[in-house]
Design a protein around this nucleic acid. Sequence first.
DNA 1: TTTTCAACCAATCAAAAAATGGTATCAATC
DNA 2: GATTGATACCATTTTTTGATTGGTTGAAAA
Lengths: 236, 236
Amino acid sequence: MSDRTHQRNDQDDSQGALAQLQAFLAAKEYPLNTRLPPERSLCAELGVNRTALRKALAVLEAEGQIWRHVGRGTFIGTKPVDNINDVGFISRRTNPAEVMEARLLIEPELARLAALSATSADIAEMQHCIRKTKTASEWRVYEAWDNKLHRAIAQATRNNLLLALFDTLNMVRRATVWGRLRTAKPTPDPGHHSFAEHDALVAAIANRDMDLAAACMRRHLETVRRKLLGSTENGG
Amino acid sequence: MSDRTHQRNDQDDSQGALAQLQAFLAAKEYPLNTRLPPERSLCAELGVNRTALRKALAVLEAEGQIWRHVGRGTFIGTKPVDNINDVGFISRRTNPAEVMEARLLIEPELARLAALSATSADIAEMQHCIRKTKTASEWRVYEAWDNKLHRAIAQATRNNLLLALFDTLNMVRRATVWGRLRTAKPTPDPGHHSFAEHDALVAAIANRDMDLAAACMRRHLETVRRKLLGSTENGG
DNA sequence: TTTTCAACCAATCAAAAAATGGTATCAATC
DNA sequence: GATTGATACCATTTTTTGATTGGTTGAAAA
């Protein structure tokens, strides 16, 4: 058998596997995103050795007709894009400085919109949270109500999407490792800076003063950042 | 044994369990989000029967100091908000008006920070996207590069958390049903309003003019909103 | 009647087992 | 010798299985 014949036989074999695979897929009419049988099963079913089958599969993958993934299988269609909105995924790629920067960027604007959109029930809820922070005798309790206050402001925007984004930010914040940054006095101080800042913030929202509400929130968060991370980088 | 005595003993018992549990927690000083031992172990450790322990735990849960979940355990702090990170979940609860409002609230601030933090490579990427939008002959291509431009600005903040939040917002926007709102001319117009607005925006970022960058982004998005939803509600 | 205890239930988690696409190895074949 | 084909092995993922945990029920005990 000559070299030429040899080569033609090889081509025939691989092309045969590809043709057989295509015929198989055409006959089955798999819907999109269907997982087709594992390679080892397809080998037996099509009567082709695995190497030839994988070459045929590689052709179809290059054409974008299928996509494969180790451990999962081979699927009809194109590979879906990764949805990496997972809180754990994000929090593993951020740090306290970024979290504070994000809060400083978003929450003042939430307060501004809340001043426009808050209902009186929203404002009552904020004032309730403030009262609770003032009577808290433990930091754990204080922080719980401080959390609720900030969420109440996000909710007062009356925008479900903004509220969802705030919740995501909040979950990342709570999942972030703050280490020694959060060490503080054993019990909340009656003269704690946040009390006056919270009062001014909610008062601005109640007065529908959008600019002042944003400014109060920014001032409050900058105080928090200064306490946590030290003085700001640009010194304002 | 009189009824009165009997009742006092009951109170003593349950209050005793609660007091013992509180003492236990105070002694351990568990950090936030710590899982404390399962009820069956706590029973043995505190020498209290499970019913009394569960009553005490219920009190602490009502106070917001702990939260419990079947199969998981009991945790210090308040129950975290449910998984509202799912894009499908959010987009089912929002609408085009909310999406535009959220973009108008967040993206100008992203542009402001980008003006401060962008590298020259970031700015080159933005200019590249702008060039591509101008040569696009189909809306699909135009929108792809417009998308990349806005994402490049978010990336230029050099803040992974903000970028993740922007991506979430973006995915919700793309998953939102816009219906007839998006109907437009068949092909991009050379005099399309976005071209000049994009140019001014990226120029402001390149000049490190934070206020101007934010203003340009706001003006651009307000134009988009006007085109999509008609005139703004408050008439500005 | 009330309290206590054990058993059970549904949800959850964690570790083991199986499955799957990718790769190396080596004999078989031309 | 070079190529092919079968086998075994690898890394990743899915499925399965058993244990764990908060919640509930019902009978026994006080």
